[in-house]
Amino acid sequence: MTARRSLELVCPAGTPAGLRAAVDAGAHAVYCGFRDETNARNFPGLNFDRAEMREGIAYAHARGARVLVALNTFMRVGAIETWTRAVDDAVAAGADALILADIGLIAYARDAHPRQRLHLSVQAAAATPEAIAFYRDRFGIARVVLPRVLTLDEIARLTAAAAPCETEVFVFGGMCVMAEGRCLLSSYATGKSPNQNGVCSPPSHVAYREENGALTATLGGFTIEQFGRGEPAGYPTLCKGRFAANGATSHLFEDPVSLNALELLPRLAEIGVSGLKIEGRQRGRAYVAAVVRAFRGALDALAQGRAPDAGALRALTEGQADTTGAYRKAWR
């Protein structure tokens, strides 16, 4: 076991090399998953086999960083051993915490490993004091990862109500505009969903078609976005697409922007948030290392009473546009 800090920078580790890069760049903790359907980033070429998990945890622990193992998909009926075995293996490998979403798996982990620290995944969408109390009081959840759709005031209220359960918030990376873990948009278009398959808008169902100089990006045959000649073509994530409604075409659900809450770190520290999560297990090592270094630098500056440099990460955000999301109450 490695000690927790008051403001822990929790960083993505999509691969063993990514884990080492994040730890070397200054991550206080990394989160990662097994190479199967038990985690919500079940993409080809990502994740850890059992031996890699043990080695990754040893590498992190030797450098004072914690490892949180995400087992945050929903178990398939009649095949729950795939998930319960993953829980057992993560505990045996020395995971500092398990990040879980399925109430059945949480119940199993609590019974089978009473001393194991459990975190509630954002995929469980606990966004009220009552929902957090439910998981804290019944299952001893030690930390809850909050949805990306809350305002700072709501985060403050939830953090106060959750104690002694800790809160963790996303500070950088992809935005999920829908209540996480309760969104079936991906499976409506493709048959594959985060809950059942650990994927959202999967590459296997993406196609690009060029017509009259415009590039059309489709998902499961549905047009998600069109790009003009010379316009940079983004990935067609369903909820970031352009659609027609009420006689107009717009980014109806969410603009194709990335979350960057770097400038909000002082306020998040004041609120008493425990974990600051960087999204992006599917991202490259260089990207992750750059983001981790910037946030670690900002946290160190904050600890010394200096203001973080808010623009430090702008070049790394999707479509070169970033947002503080709902945190500033822009959605009311």
Partner: peptide, 26 residues
């Protein structure tokens, strides 16, 4: 919503299609 399950405190109730019950353990 799971908050409602918390507030029901064990009283008999119906669960609608918005809670994630994908398997026998859940």
């Amino acid at each position: 919503d799971i908050a409602t399950v918390h507030l029901l405190a064990g009283a008999p109730h119906v669960v609608g299609p918005y809670l994630n019950i994908y398997n026998e353990a859940a």
